[in-house]
Design a protein around this nucleic acid. Structure first.
Lengths: 132, 132
DNA sequence: CGTCTCGCTTACGTTCGCGTCAACTTTCAC
DNA sequence: GTGAAAGTTGACGCGAACGTAAGCGAGACG
C-alpha cells in the first residue's frame, strides 16, 4: 500500500482539477503517470509533483518554469553540467520568490492602510464583518 | 510643477511598458490620462495607479481584479453601498495576499532545502556562486 | 446482447494580455 | 511650409492554459 495508485478521476477530485488539465500537464512533461493498458495511474510521486505544480502556478510561474524546477525535486541525471544548470534555475526561481515575498509584505501593509482608511469613511457597523 | 505631466513615451520608459499596454489599460478603465487635443498626458495619480497595476500583476491578479481594487485608492463615490462593496473586495484581495504570503514562505523554505541538497551532490566549487 | 460509464485521443474554440501592422493626424525642428 | 517623429484609432494575431465536443475502445451490469 506504499504506492497507492489513483485513477484520473480520483486525482481530479483530490486536487480540484479537470482530467483535461492532468492530460495537459502530461503532454507538457510535468507529470508521468504509468499506464495500465491505456488508462493512467498516478502514484505518490505524481501527487507530490502535482502539488508543486499547483503551488508554482499560484505564484505566477509558467508551466515551463515549473517543469524546469521540478527537476530539482527529482535527482534525474548524474550529469554534473546538467545538475549545475538545474541548480542555477532553482536559484533564479528562489530569487524571484524572495523578491515577491518582500514586495508582497509591503503591498499587504499598504492595502491594510487603505482598507482602514476606507472603513473610517463608513458609519460604524455598515456591513462590516471583522469578527464573527 | 506639482503635476508633472508625462507623455506616453516617458511613461513607457519610466515603467518599462509599451504604448500598447498603456492604451490597453485605459481601454479596460484602469487609468484615465487627460488629453491635450488627441494626445494622452499622465499625471501623478496615473503613475501611482500604474505602479499598483504592475504590482498587482506580479501577484497574479487579473486586470479586472486590479481595477476593482484601485477604487479603494480613489475615494470615487460617497455612496455607502458602493464603498462597502469596494471594501469587501479589498478584504478578499487582502486575504488572498495573506494566504499567498504564508504559502510563499513555506515554498521558499522547501526550495532552499532542495537547493542545498542538490548542491551537496556537486563537487565543491562547481559553478557555485553563493558569495560573490 | 445492448447500453452505460469511464477513459482515451484528436482537434478546434476560448479568454487574457498584450504584439503587430495599417492608415491617419498632430507636433516639432528646421 | 515640409518632412520626420510621435501619437492616434481600429483590427487582426498570438501564446499560454485550458474548455469542449466528437468519436472510439474496454469493462461492468442487468
Amino acid at each position: 500500500m506504499s504506492e497507492q495508485l489513483m485513477t484520473i478521476r480520483e486525482m481530479c477530485d483530490a486536487f480540484s482539477v479537470t482530467p483535461r488539465t492532468l492530460r495537459f500537464y502530461e503532454a507538457r512533461e510535468l507529470i508521468f503517470p504509468q499506464r495500465r493498458g491505456q488508462h493512467r495511474l498516478y502514484d505518490r510521486r505524481d501527487r507530490a509533483r502535482l502539488t508543486l505544480i499547483l503551488r508554482g502556478k499560484r505564484f505566477g510561474f509558467s508551466l515551463e518554469q515549473i517543469r524546469q524546477l521540478l527537476e530539482l525535486y527529482e535527482p534525474g541525471g548524474t550529469n554534473q553540467t546538467q545538475i549545475a544548470a538545474t541548480i542555477q534555475i532553482g536559484r533564479e526561481r528562489l530569487a524571484d520568490m524572495e523578491r515577491q515575498y518582500a514586495e508582497l509584505e509591503e503591498a499587504i501593509v499598504e492595502l491594510r492602510q487603505q482598507l482602514a482608511e476606507a472603513e473610517s469613511r463608513l458609519p460604524a457597523g455598515t456591513g462590516n464583518k471583522i469578527s464573527g
